[in-house]
Design a protein around this nucleic acid. Structure first.
Lengths: 233, 233
DNA sequence: CCCTTTTCACCTAGGTGGTAAGAT
DNA sequence: ATCTTACCACCTAGGTGAAAAGGG
């Protein structure tokens, strides 16, 4: 899908107001999202799969930009995976805002289980090529494959800290590097944010939905060792 | 060793005139140089070993710099490896400008064998983190481990093109990114070059001096598979 | 004969989910 | 019971020199 822009586009600097971002691997993201995407978090840090990748356009080729990501809680709940008492629990269809399809034949599903833990330190991840010219960013797909997720509140590797069993929405930000002296005063005008609902996920320390596990194994090259059936090139 | 600066430091921009570069792994470079360093060139491109790495100082922390390398022919000769007629040939001691030690007990040595081939296209290799602030470059060792050498005159991968059986001197350049409009007119003032004699080498398609081969195997982690004796941690 | 190219086994380096043990 | 951790086999990806084959 194309750019879901943040609210309040008014008053933006002309260097960012035309910026657009297309999510790459959209169909794969949607396939995961239909099942209820889960992302592993570990103490050492784990990459996301699918990797968050965007194709940019509308930047000033000669201007400098910083690209970064952050993750915001989707609600104030803690979840658990299990059997509901007579179907009272939320099912993956409910968690997927882009598809109302139900999976009633699943025996298990995600259930709200109390209020969220205190929010983890709100870190951001700068794309390591930042800063760079607009031309450079638009030349090819921008991939956040160095981004890692951790559940270690004391992490000192600069990874994104999330609470397991909580839901998150990745956000992507394009920041124009303003050369003006008092650029701080224009900071609110110099960035543009993008949010793709199909990339929301549940942070977990181990996969709960076996369909998610199977889709990860089927689509992540690094998990090829767990495929059993004949491959389809 | 410390920075061997290029000639003509006069009239340099103040953003580069105090720049200094210390070659890392100096003792390893010298060990190779004493034997007559050889670097493999292949069609696909081969990394250098040792890797060219420097520690920078004296940059303006807030100014932008581009770091790059090029390779200049050390003479106008073509060489071959073999037996001289009564010791007329050059030996590794002659090739090593930093050490006059002779290796008369070697049965083979490098011999001049005619004039150099037409010079290959004079490419440069930009450090992939360029441009970046002085503070960023000085924070840690700058490593040119993405640089690859090729003997393919038609190479279109952006690798450094060299003639096999010719001698080269790597050069390292620090370029201040001048924000002035007519910065081209100051280009000659905005860079500073460094040349470390112990990094000179002979380009080859296959190692000639067996002592070089053994030193590569002993010191390059990727060649560990060819070590035979018990390791010494 | 000398040099170059290709292929290969053997490494480094690091990303997978499975599994069993550990923690609460 | 439920969630977390540590370790593992098995991958991807790519950097080594050896050896054999190829070319002038």
């Amino acid at each position: 899908g194309w750019a879901g822009e943040g609210p309040g586009t008014g008053g933006k600097n002309r260097r960012v107001c035309h910026a657009a971002a297309r999510l790459e691997m959209g169909s794969l993201w949607e396939e995961f999202n239909r099942l209820g995407t889960e992302m592993i978090v570990t103490k050492a840090g784990r990459r996301m799969f699918p990797t968050f990748q965007v194709k940019l356009s509308g930047l000033d080729p000669l201007a400098d930009y910083v690209l970064l990501m952050d993750f915001i809680p989707l609600d104030d709940k803690r979840y658990r995976w299990g059997w509901g008492d007579g179907g009272r629990g939320l099912d993956p269809g409910v968690l997927s805002s882009s598809s109302p399809r139900r999976y009633a034949f699943h025996s298990s599903s995600w259930l709200a289980a109390g209020r969220a833990e205190p929010a983890a330190p709100g870190r951001v991840h700068f794309h390591p090529d930042s800063p760079a010219k607009g031309a450079q960013w638009m030349r090819q797909i921008v991939s956040f494959d160095k981004l890692k997720l951790t559940n270690n509140l004391l992490d000192d590797n600069g990874h994104i800290i999330l609470n397991s069993m909580h839901r998150y929405q990745p956000r992507f930000h394009v920041v124009f590097v303003d050369p003006r002296r008092d650029s701080e005063r224009f900071a609110h005008q110099n960035f543009k944010s993008f949010s793709f609902p199909e990339t929301q996920f549940m942070a977990v320390t181990a996969y709960q939905n076996h369909r998610i596990t199977q889709l990860k194994i089927a689509s992540n090259p690094f998990a090829k060792g767990f495929r059993d059936g004949d491959p389809e090139p």
